Simulated scan of single mutants.
Amino acid sequence: MDKVNLIVEENNIRIDTYISSKLENLSRSAIQKLINEENITVNSKAVNKNYKVKINDEIIINIPEPKVLDVVAEDIDLDIVYEDNDVAVINKPQGMVVHPAVGHYSGTLVNALMSKVDELSSINGVIRPGIVHRLDKNTSGLLIIAKNDYSHIYLSDCLKEHSINRIYHALVEGVVKNDKGVIDAPLGRSEKDRKKRCVTKKNSKEAITNYEVIKRYKKYTLIKLKLETGRTHQIRVHMKYIGHPIVGDDVYGKVDKKFGLNGQLLHSKSIGFVHPKTKEYLEFESELPIYFKRVLEKLDKSER
């Protein structure tokens, strides 16, 4: 059982709301379940979900071990860009969920990895073996897989230190004026929709995205993005924040009708990192998906 201690820094916020703002991996419904089971205490006493926290309250959260799910290896094609005894680099297709979760117990990257990769790290448990970082379901491109626990810890530390180079390409709505820019805007959960993230100073974390224009079209811009931090939905929220949501993003932008897309045009184009064992710097690049190229070709033709 994992144990998390929090010292409250704010007043008069419902405990489930406060905890969900601090622990992104726990939903409010999961927190309420923990409260009901008395796995969450405040100043060593059980509370109900309506309790409003006070400054200097000590919250102790006991998170039971996840129930072992029967995560089945599935013979799903994987684009394995690189693999050795310690790491693998996968080119994830759009539409594939990274690991099993409610509503997605099969067809995930993890199901495929269990069939194609001989060994995976165990640090994230049976549900997320080998998963060091994630891409959204409808974001395509490169991500690193850890094949043992040493590599997992090493790569997780690299992520925290921002030493993994992650470059994305995206097509965004509108014409971006500046050739280059930095979006330094903290991200937290949206109070209107807890499944979404937004730019906010309240219960937020630092988030920094660098962007550079690759090509401008009449109504769109192709851009390159480099992450300094890796918050949930960071690029998608930051681009919306500056008025240029990603084309096809039906959560932070608008439903695509013009190009017939199934998700946002956001691709993890390249990834570079120092190898956990050899300490050699490795960098990998992937091509844009066919559907992404077709949209760019259509835009090129329309502007001739």
Rank of each mutant, 00 (worst) to 15 (best):
A30G: 07
E303G: 10
E9I: 13
K201V: 13
L78Q: 04
V172A: 00
G230V: 05
S163L: 10
Y281T: 12
H99D: 13
R166V: 01
G181L: 12
L26Y: 08
H244L: 03
Y211E: 07
Q264I: 06
L23I: 15
R128Q: 11
C198K: 13
I290H: 13
A112D: 07
R166M: 01
K279S: 06
E65V: 13
E10I: 14
S286W: 04
E74N: 01
V126D: 07
T232F: 06
E191S: 15
L6S: 05
I164Q: 04
E65P: 12
G248M: 03
V274E: 12
N56W: 13
I40H: 01
E37Q: 12
Y154P: 07
Y105D: 09
V47F: 05
D157T: 15
F292W: 06
R294W: 07
P100M: 09
N43E: 13
D249E: 09
K205G: 01
D57A: 05
A88I: 00
D250C: 15
G125W: 01
T209W: 01
K240C: 09
R216K: 09
Y291A: 05
M239E: 06
N85A: 14
I40E: 02
Q264V: 05
Y241E: 07
N12E: 12
L282E: 09
S140Q: 03
S44F: 14
S106V: 08
P100L: 08
V110T: 06
A101S: 15
V295H: 04
K202D: 13
A73Y: 11
T41I: 14
M239K: 03
K160S: 14
G243T: 10
I153K: 11
C198D: 00
I223A: 02
Y211D: 06
E287N: 13
V172R: 00
